[in-house]
Amino acid sequence: MASEAQGAETGGLEFHPMDQFNIESLFGGPIAWYTPTNAALWMGLAILAVIGLMVLTTTKRSVVPSRGQSVAELAYGFVYKMVEDVSGKDGVVYFPYIMTLFMFIVCANFLGLIPMSFTTTSHFAVTVVLAMAVFLTVTVLGFVKNGTKFLGLFWVSSAPLALRPILAIIEVISYFVRPVSHSIRLAGNVMAGHAVIKVFAGFAAIAVVSPIAIAGIVAMYALEILVSFIQAYVFTILTCVYLKDALHPSH
């Protein structure tokens, strides 16, 4: 928000919608791989959020849950049911991994909505690692569980024989595009929303349009709250779908 203030002071319109995504060292100096940065800080806060949401609320283990415990149980049931419904009964083994992904993404997304905060999930570095982790795990798992039968995923046996090689090429391409779409969908949505909010904020420096700009910020913020959850949900359910393909590769 300080950049807008500076823009107002200089009198002109200055948009820096992407500045909020800058990675900065917390204590100054160059950024090496181990440097604590704002990204590291907000990831740490995501850990604290997960602890606060899932651990601290359930310390009483009450049979009749408190509000916090209800939220934790709701999150647990939500993801557990998703894994069970989409991936099948044998996918439940991987529930903790999927829960980890979901909790990290949902906490990071919502923490990113706090003004002045940094949104870790808006960076491709983060989402690509998440998506590649899912992609590689699922591929390895598919081969380990099914051997060469896993390749049946690309051979559409219900299609006419002549079409099958063409479909196989398409299937292979779509399979390798998965991690790309998986990662860019999340980061792109989060980044775009935050950038649009920033652009509206830049317009708020002009007195005439500032009411509209602020209304726009409010509307975008509401949309972003929705997006934060939906993108976490989409990422998780796609992970479940990919896991299902690995466990049951037949079409």
Binding site: I23, I31, A32, W33, Y34, T35, T37, A39, A40, M43, G44, A46, I47, V50, I51, M54, V55, T58, R61, S62, V63, P65, Q69, A72, E73, Y76, G77, F95, P96, Y97, M99, T100, L101, M103, F104, T120, H123, A125, V126, V129, L130
Partner: peptide, 30 residues
Amino acid sequence: GNQIFWLVITLVVIYLILSRVALPRIASVL
């Protein structure tokens, strides 16, 4: 590199918290 390093740490920590503490506890409560 920096982000990936911290992300991996974050994910491992969250995974340990969830799989060791939170999920068994919630499962037992349910």
